[in-house]
Design a protein around this nucleic acid. Structure first.
Lengths: 230, 230
DNA sequence: CGAACTTTATTTGTACTACATAAGAACTAA
DNA sequence: TTAGTTCTTATGTAGTACAAATAAAGTTCG
C-alpha cells in the first residue's frame, strides 16, 4: 500500500512541535481577525509573549509564513500581510524523486483533465495572432526528424494552448508540472499516434466549433487515457 | 494594476535573508544529491557549520522544509526525507481575504476547466454504486426549497463527481477551492438556470456516451462561462 | 549464553541573551 | 521650512545552555 494511502487511515500521532502549533495559531489569527493585505502584525516580542513561546520558536513559524508569501517583514516597521503567491509553495514541493507514485499518477490524470477542459476558455480568448503562432509550431513539426525535437515541439504546442487561455495561474501550473512527466513523454512517441493531430486541432480552433474542438482534443489525448485504463 | 501583475514586471529586490538562502541551498542539495524518501540528512550542527550560519538560521530554513513535508525529524536519529504532501502547502495559502482578485478569477476559471474535463475519467471509473449515490442527491433536490440547502446540494453533486474520478489529488483540490467561491455560488442561483440539469447529467452518465456527457457538462456550466466573457 | 534492564551518548527542541542593522521618528540647526 | 542628525524600535543573526527523547552501548541476573 502506498504511503499516501496508508496515512489516511493511520494518521501520524500528533508529534507537533511548538513551531507547528504557533504556525497554526498565527494562521487562525490572520483568518479570524479578518486581516487584509497591508495590515501590520504585532511585533515578534509581543507575539512571542502572547503565545508564551520563545522568540526563537515564533520566528520558525513566521519563517514559514514568510516562505508562503503570507507576510513580509521590514526592519523597524514590523511585519505586514501580503498577497501570497499561491503556486510558489507548490513549486518547492514538486521534486519528482520525492513524490510518491500514486500522486504522480494523480497529477498526470489532472493534466489530462485540464487539457480536455480547455476548449471553452480557448474559444473565448483565441486571437488571430495566437492561432498564427500555433500554426507556426505545427508547420515546424513537418521537418522534425529527431525524437528530442519532437518532444519539445509537443511541449511547445500544448504550452501555447495554455498560454492562449490567458490564465496565468493555469499556465504556471502547467509549466510546473512539465518536468514531472518526462518519463511519460518518452513513452509517448513510441505509443500509437492519435488520429487527431496538432494540425487538426489548430484547424478546428480556427474554423470549427467548440464542440468539435472538445471532441478533437479528447481524441488527441485518447492514447494517454487508454494507458490509464489498465 | 493588480499587485500580482505588477510584480511580474517589477520583481522585488532580493532582500533575501540568510534563512531564504539556506532554504534554497538545502533544496538544491536535496535535488542534486538525488536523495530519496527515507534518506537521512546530516545533523543540524553539521549543516549549520557547512553553510556557515547559526543553528538558529538553519532551523528557520528546516522549519520551512518540515512544513512542506519534505523532511521529518526525530530526536537522536536525525532528519529523514519524506514524501511531501503536495497540496498541504497549497491549503495554507488559500485565504480568500488575501488572494488578489486576478488570482481568484484564475482559480474560478481553473475550476470550470476541470469540471469540463472530467468526462473521460468519470466514464472510466464510474460504478453502479456511484451512480446510485448521484441519483440520490438529485432525488433530494426535488424537495429542496431553501436557498442554502440548494447550494449545499449543488456542492454535494459536483463533489461526488470529483469523488467518482477516484483521483484523490483532484478531489482534495476541489474541496480546497470550495470556500473560495462562496460568493460565486450565492450569485449562481439567481443567474439563469442551465438547460442541462444535474438529473440530465446523471442520466447521460448512466446511459449515454462520453461525447454526450462532455457536451452536457459544458452546457450545464455555460452560465458560468458566460459570466467570464464580459 | 542470552534476555531484560540501565546507562550513556547524541540529536532535536526550546529558551534566553546579546548585539548588528536598518529605518521610521523625533529633534536640531541653518 | 528644510536638511541633516540623533534616537528609538523591530527585525536579523549568533551563541550558549539545557530539556527531552531515543538509539546504542553496557550491565546485571537468570
Amino acid at each position: 500500500m502506498e504511503l499516501s494511502e496508508l496515512s489516511k487511515d493511520l494518521k501520524p500521532i500528533s508529534a507537533d512541535t511548538r513551531a507547528d502549533l504557533v504556525e497554526l495559531r498565527l494562521r487562525e489569527y490572520l483568518a479570524n481577525k479578518e486581516l487584509r493585505t497591508g495590515d501590520v502584525l504585532p511585533t515578534e516580542l509581543e507575539l512571542s509573549a502572547a503565545l508564551g513561546v520563545s522568540r526563537n520558536v515564533l520566528r520558525e513559524a513566521l519563517s514559514r509564513l514568510r516562505m508562503l508569501g503570507l507576510i513580509e517583514s521590514r526592519k523597524k516597521r514590523g511585519m505586514v500581510l501580503t498577497s501570497p503567491d499561491i503556486l510558489g509553495s507548490f513549486e518547492r514541493v514538486l521534486n519528482p524523486q520525492l513524490i510518491d507514485t500514486t500522486t504522480l499518477q494523480n497529477l498526470f490524470e489532472l493534466r489530462l483533465v485540464l487539457e480536455s477542459g480547455l476548449a471553452d476558455l480557448l474559444f473565448i480568448r483565441k486571437t488571430d495572432e495566437n492561432i498564427e503562432e500555433l500554426e507556426a509550431i505545427v508547420e515546424n513539426e513537418k521537418f522534425i526528424d529527431d525524437d528530442m525535437f519532437r518532444v519539445n515541439s509537443e511541449i511547445a504546442f500544448h504550452s501555447k494552448l495554455y498560454e492562449i487561455t490567458g490564465n496565468d495561474t493555469l499556465k504556471r501550473f502547467q509549466v510546473m508540472l512539465l518536468p514531472l512527466f518526462d518519463f511519460v513523454l518518452k513513452n509517448e512517441n513510441r505509443s500509437v499516434k492519435s488520429k487527431v493531430s496538432h494540425a487538426d486541432l489548430v484547424r478546428i480552433l480556427k474554423e470549427g466549433t467548440k464542440e468539435e474542438f472538445v471532441i478533437g482534443m479528447r481524441e488527441h489525448l485518447r492514447p494517454h487515457f487508454e494507458l490509464l485504463q489498465k
